[in-house]
Design a protein around this nucleic acid. Structure first.
Lengths: 160, 160
DNA sequence: CCCATTCTGTTATATTATAACACAGTCGTT
DNA sequence: AACGACTGTGTTATAATATAACAGAATGGG
């Protein structure tokens, strides 16, 4: 069990489901989920936290490979470009996508205590921002919405 | 003239107004706008773009000082903490606040062509996000909303 | 099989950011 | 004025994040 959307759940399924979704999506669109890309996705799926590229490198090296930074960055670039992972700008770190396959652009709730990251439902906010920006002539292409705060678990733990 | 909120305007006033606002705010709250902090604010105000810490360092060095990275980062930390500037996470860069004094947390419209940055009116989005996050028990403390796209000027310039 | 393209391995380096510590300035108290 | 506490500055060094560049291997279409 781990935290996902800040609710406890059976975590084993996350990894296999996430990989399966990516494999299906790649098959459908002619992308190649190579061994390295798949491995990096698994590493991200194994945590519901943002991991830095160098955190991922450590895991790859623990696998026995003498991986250099570009190995991690390339795999991450592929995963992010194709919607299997997202970059959390605030943390210079990466998370596996919580809704692979679904068309969406993410908003994040980032716990400042435990670093857990949940994807928030923000489609309406996104639409509002597009609309509001359009009024001033700005054409929005990509939106990052990231909230820092306390997740339910850490709020409870706080005995202030 | 320069771009501000993507509209052209008399830019000279920006610098003096921005510095004056910061001086007034510091006086009111017992903060010290030292020479370095003021200089960095001026540098930021002189552009309506995000500047990296090392861009600022270059300008400081051009002033004749042999400034080291902590000089820039310390001044920027002061300015950001006290609302005279904001960090644009997406760019690892900093902009002068466009509404000094007013209580606000910013949303940014970042032009991917010319790197101009405008503060967008996003109070409603922010409230919606707080509310939506609260539903899942997450207590939002800080929100970053950053949209990447094309500003009006660059949209016009695009002859696609 | 051959070629073009994509992916990988590797070295090197660029960019962004902070730790740590000695010293200078400020300010309130004596 | 002397002291001490605190805050700010100057400086060296290093950490953390990210990319350029290029050679070679793998893949896939013709």
């Amino acid at each position: 069990m781990s935290s996902h959307g800040f609710a406890s759940h059976n975590h084993n399924a996350c990894i296999s489901n996430g990989v399966a979704a990516a494999e299906a999506a790649c098959l459908a669109s002619g992308l190649k989920l190579t061994a390295q890309r798949k491995r990096v996705l698994e590493i991200l799926l194994a945590e519901h936290r943002a991991m830095g590229a160098y955190d991922i490198l450590e895991v790859l090296r623990a696998d026995g490979q003498p991986a250099q930074p570009p190995v991690a960055y390339r795999a991450l670039a592929f995963l992010v470009e194709n919607g299997f992972a997202h970059k959390v700008e605030r943390l210079n770190a990466f998370v596996a996508c919580a809704h692979p396959g679904e068309e969406h652009a993410p908003g994040f709730l980032i716990c400042r205590m435990c670093k857990a990251v949940a994807e928030a439902p923000i489609a309406p906010l996104r639409r509002a921002l597009h609309k509001s920006a359009a009024l001033s002539g700005f054409a929005v292409e990509h939106v990052a919405i990231e909230a820092l705060g306390l997740c339910p678990n850490c709020t409870d733990r706080q005995t202030i």
